[in-house]
Each structure stands twice: as structure tokens, then as C-alpha cells.
Simulated scan of single mutants.
Amino acid sequence: MIGENDIILDKTDLHILRLMQQNARISNADMARELNMAPSGVLERVKKLEQKGVILQYTTRLNPTVLQQKLLAFIFMKAADGPGSNTTSLELAKIPEVQEVHHVAGDDCYLIKVRTYDSASLMQLMRNSFSKIPNILSTRTTIVLETVKEEQQLVIP
């Protein structure tokens, strides 16, 4: 079985990924022109990148402020279930306001990223959602005052 680390990407694959990461709506024809390839060849390569799990999903990035989700916070959590258990992380991942869940090394078990409307809705989230997860022992919240850079793009060699 080939693992994720065994996937080999050539220069053309990497170029396709760069183009698609800059603009996921780029057409096969535009990519083909950029790569000096036939559109059918580009389409075939993109489908293979999807099948291999290199391209995971196509999404639209929305402006959270326009949607009134103005509060961004990072919450460190300690949990009773150990690092080998996924019970708490799966429960956290079900909460719509939770954007990211990370197992972390150190004193805490999890680092989660949440977006809410304001501090009152953050408090409501903590009271109504987090408090219902039995394994959470403590939380430590950091509220973001200003975001200088936030993106999901990866560095493509």
C-alpha cells in the first residue's frame, strides 16, 4: 500500500497545484495554456491528484467579518482522556463554531480555533457546548485582537 509520503509529484503536478491554489476556479483551458499542454491532459492530471488524495477539497473562502463572525479565539484545553483517545477531539469537531482541532504536546491536550459573533456568543459556546463534553478538565482562551495573516495555502516547491 502506498502511503501519503510515497506519492511522487513531478514538476507539472506541482505547477498545477500552484495554479489551483492561487485560483481554484481556474479553467482546464487556462491551465493548459500556462503549462503548454492539451486541456484533456491537464484534466487527467487533476483527476489523478484528486484520486491520490493530494487535492482534498475545493472550497470558497468567506469573509467572517461580513458574516458578523468578528471574534476569533484560540482555546487550549486539558482533557481527561489520554492522547491515544479521540473521544474529546471528535466531540469538539462536531461543534460548528470550531474551525480547527489539534492534539498538542505539552501541558494541554488540545488547541482549538473558534469563530463567534462576540464575547457573549463565545461565553455561550463555552457554557452550552464545551461544558457538555465530559472529558474537558480546563480551558485557557486567547482572544485575537487583530489578524495580520491568515491563510490555508501551503508552500509548493
Rank of each mutant, 00 (worst) to 15 (best):
Leu137Pro: 08
Leu71Glu: 01
Leu145Lys: 06
Arg18Gly: 01
Ala93Cys: 09
Leu111Thr: 00
Thr87His: 13
Leu35Asn: 02
Val54Gln: 02
Asn23Ala: 01
Ile133Trp: 04
Ser40Ile: 13
His103Asn: 08
His102Trp: 07
Met126Ala: 03
Val148Tyr: 13
Lys48Cys: 11
Phe74Asp: 00
Val42Phe: 00
Tyr58Cys: 10
Ile2Glu: 13
Ile2Asn: 14
Asp107Phe: 13
Thr141Ile: 09
Pro83Asn: 12
Ala93Asp: 11
Leu90Met: 14
Ile133Thr: 05
Ile95Asn: 10
Lys52Asp: 12
Lys11Thr: 13
Glu4Asp: 14
Lys132Phe: 06
Glu151Asn: 09
Leu67Asn: 14
Gly41Ile: 04
Ile7Gln: 13
Leu71Met: 04
Ala38Lys: 15
Val98Ala: 03
Gln57Asp: 13
Tyr110Val: 04
Gly3Gln: 12
His15Ser: 14
Thr147Lys: 11
Asp118Ile: 05
Pro39Trp: 08
Leu125Pro: 02
Ile16Phe: 01
Val144Thr: 11
Phe130Glu: 04
Asp13Ile: 02
Asn23Trp: 00
Met31Trp: 00
Ala105Asn: 11
Met37Pro: 01
Asn128Val: 05
Thr87Arg: 14
Glu150His: 08
Ser138Pro: 01
Ser129Arg: 15
Val114Gly: 02
Ala73Tyr: 05
Ala38Thr: 12
Leu90His: 14
Pro83His: 10
Arg140Met: 05
Ile75Glu: 00
Glu100Gly: 03
Leu67Cys: 12
Lys113Asp: 02
Ala38Met: 14
Asn28Leu: 10
Val66Cys: 05
Ser131Asp: 07
Glu44Ile: 07
Leu122Ala: 02
Val42Tyr: 02
Gln57Glu: 15
Val155Gly: 13
Ala24Glu: 03
Asp107Leu: 14
Thr142Asp: 11
Ala29Arg: 15
Ile75Leu: 05
Val46Thr: 05
Val66Asp: 03
Arg33Ala: 09
Leu19Arg: 02
Val42Ser: 02
Thr87Trp: 06
Arg18Trp: 03
Thr139Gln: 07
Phe130Gly: 07
Arg45Tyr: 01
Leu56Trp: 10
Gln21Lys: 00
Glu97Gln: 15
Pro96Lys: 11
Pro134Tyr: 13
Val46Lys: 07
His102Gly: 03
Glu100His: 06
Arg61Asn: 06
Lys132Ser: 11
Val155Leu: 13
Val155Ser: 15
Asn23Gln: 04
Met123Phe: 11
Thr88Asp: 04
Ser121Tyr: 10
Met126Arg: 06
Gln68Leu: 12
Lys48Arg: 15
